[in-house]
Design a protein around this nucleic acid. Structure first.
Lengths: 203, 203
DNA sequence: GTCTATACGTAGATAGAC
DNA sequence: GTCTATCTACGTATAGAC
């Protein structure tokens, strides 16, 4: 009994997902240019040529991963933004999200950063990245400003505070990726939030 | 009048330094594997083949840069360590050093990190890197512990606090490297130190 | 849909001229 | 000491067999 068109489509979707999943680790570990298509193929358990059946090029895979990662974070930030939580709670939720991602999928954040730094990247992926950067920091900054108005976030330039938080989260993803195990003594959300919160608001 | 042996030696030293300086930027920007020898050559204003007169391979240049950067930071940390400053002041001095380096030579910190992450690296460079990681964090951790004993640093696992600080500094270098200009609103030392210091010890 | 074999280009490294 | 020309290896992408 031959496979139906639906079966084929399902296989195709699965393979695409396999490739993307495998690529995430390899890209984060070795970077875009150092990653060979053969690396991806073997990581995904596929033959070399087959990868080209699903993606036109290495850069296309990279761009796709970036798109997904960006969308993921943006979605979460938006859902938090429209919630009725307090500004500090929103910041906490966002940090927890990023930290959790850093632990379980450190590739994500790191690949986004690579995309920022790298030169040779498809224009579409670059556009997504730019949007991500401005949109996220814009949102986080608004939380900080609201918190300052209610007196739960310390005074100071929101841009600076936003950057400080970004740096901490960024560095965490980096650290997580380098040390290939989950190290004991991971920084807690509270430690990071101490940079922003007014004395006494955290335990 | 022919050049003396000293002249030749001086020229040789200068060229080596030229190559290293030029390489730092390129490596940080593009990563080890994406960097071509031709990139380095043109960045240094030299011909392609000449680079091989001074270095045997691309990896050797990279390793040399890493060694320098590591030594630089280690030296500073040691000099601070033996000073009679308070633990919090030592931490502040170290942060200021790293932040300043991040601003003026963001390549440094970023290249060290790359070296951590990358797989294909000369064994010697790897050894230097490992030493760096353990030595630095060991020193910083000792400052944190001393500060906790004198009551100027908050209670908590020193390993965790050390990591948090490391993340922030790490992320800053990354950010600095990605946004190719010196952005307004750079995080201040105080903001980072708020993660560690007891309430009221900072302005 | 999946694989292996091949053509093409590019980058690392060397040799030899000036 | 400095350059250009060349050899070689490897990685991308494609073509064609199963």
């Amino acid at each position: 009994m031959p496979r139906t068109a639906e079966d084929n489509q399902r296989i195709k979707d699965e393979r695409r997902e396999d490739i993307l999943t495998a690529s995430r680790t390899v890209f984060a570990r070795k970077g875009l240019s150092a990653t060979k298509m053969s690396d991806i193929a073997s990581a995904a358990g596929l033959s070399y040529g087959l990868v080209y059946h699903y993606f036109d090029s290495k850069e296309e895979i990279f761009a796709e991963i970036v798109r997904h990662a960006v969308q993921d974070t943006l979605n979460f930030a938006s859902s938090v933004d429209v919630s009725d939580a307090s500004p500090l709670e929103k910041l906490r939720a966002f940090c927890e999200f990023k930290i959790q991602k850093s632990v379980h999928r450190p590739e994500m954040h790191l690949i986004i950063t690579q995309a920022f730094a790298t030169d040779a990247l498809p224009p579409e992926a670059l556009a997504a990245i730019r949007q991500y950067g401005s949109k996220i920091s814009e949102t986080v900054r608004s939380w900080i400003q609201q918190g300052q108005e209610t007196g739960h976030i310390i005074e100071g330039d929101p841009v600076e505070l936003d950057m400080a938080l970004f740096c901490a989260l960024q560095g965490l993803a980096m650290l997580q990726m380098c040390s290939r195990v989950v190290p004991r003594g991971m920084p807690s959300v509270d430690t990071f939030l101490r940079m922003l919160s007014v004395r006494g608001d955290l335990s």
